[in-house]
Simulated scan of single mutants.
Amino acid sequence: MVLSPQDIHNKEFSTKLRGYNVDEVNDFLDQVIKDYQIVLQENKDLNSQLNEAKDKLSYFNDLKDSLNQSILVAQEAADKVKTNSKKEAEITSREAQKKADDILNAANEKADAVLEEASKRAKKLAIETDDLKKNTRVFRQRLQVMLESQLEVIKGSDWDRLVEEKPTTTYEDIEKVVGSLDNIANPGVQSETKQSNGAADVEETPATVDDSNQTVVIYPDGRTQNE
């Protein structure tokens, strides 16, 4: 049992012969009581401080646990947000890639269609151009043969006799020479080149031969017209 200052103060000692001085002992006990009271008060204060420190430690421990729990919750929430953001980014990226692929495929299909159409037109134009060249060559050959035939007729001896300055030329002679010219011009000239693939005929432009007083129009089919 711990002594109290009151226990020390009330303590009585028995006396003996040649014992201690009572006044000195009482003075010493008074000093012990004072020091003991100080020590007890300090011990009490220390216990109070210790209790306060324990309370604060408990509070901070609880706060630490709460903060740790909050950190865990925040970390979980951040992980969820990060995961959701990643998923949304992947979905957005896939949708954007799909749209880009669709646009690219549509553009490629349109470009292929345009190229195919242009190729068809180019082939058609090439065929038409080739046919036009063939028809032009045919027309040129016909015209050349016809003009050469007409030139041969004009250079013939019948015309020479016709234009001689002799009174022996009769109307029958002139009619005979003109009739021979008509017989050569009317049958027409056959082409030596055949048209291929059923190409359409090109419109043939008539050629003209200018005489001294009139113009004779000579068509490729052998027809003539005086103007």
Rank of each mutant, 00 (worst) to 15 (best):
Q31L: 04
I38G: 07
F28T: 06
K44N: 15
I33E: 07
K34L: 05
K34C: 00
N51F: 04
D45H: 10
Q37M: 10
E24C: 03
Q41D: 15
F28Y: 11
N21F: 02
E52T: 10
L50Q: 12
I38R: 08
V25S: 01
Y36Q: 02
V32Q: 03
N51Q: 12
E42W: 06
Y20C: 02
S48M: 12
D23P: 00
D45N: 15
E42M: 09
V22M: 05
N21K: 05
N51V: 04
Y36D: 00
V22K: 11
D27V: 06
L29R: 07
V32M: 03
D30C: 03
Q41V: 10
Y20G: 08
D23R: 07
Y36E: 01
E24M: 05
Y36G: 01
D45Y: 08
D27A: 12
F28G: 01
V25T: 02
D30Q: 09
N51K: 14
L40N: 14
D45Q: 15
N26I: 06
L29E: 01
D30R: 11
I33G: 00
N47A: 15
Q37Y: 04
N43S: 14
S48G: 11
N43D: 12
I33F: 00
E52Y: 05
Q37G: 08
V25P: 00
D35S: 12
Q49H: 11
Q41C: 05
Q37S: 14
E42H: 12
S48A: 15
I38P: 00
Q37C: 02
Q31G: 03
